[in-house]
Amino acid sequence: MNKIIKEKLDNIIREVLGVKIVNDLSMETVSGWDSLRHIQLMAKIEKDFKIELDFKDTLAMTDLNSIRNILEKYVGKK
């Protein structure tokens, strides 16, 4: 993932979840990452990157690594 995209994604995560970016960041380690925040996070990623995530991908985006990997699939296409 290139640096600009990574930074843009980190900013989105920081803004929506209100956390510092650490490698083990996941739904289980971020206490406020509930269903409502997940909707907000996915919506913001879609809006800011101008993409439409497949619903199966939004189910699998449960930690920082999976979000980065899945997002790369979309931004790589553009």
């Binding site: 739904m27 269903s35 997940h38 996915m42 619903f55 199966k56 939004t58 189910l59 449960t62």
Partner: peptide, 17 residues
Amino acid sequence: MVRPKTGLKSFWSLIKE
């Protein structure tokens, strides 16, 4: 079966699929 936290965003898509 879906995790409650992630499933809500895809609620209608899951039902359709």
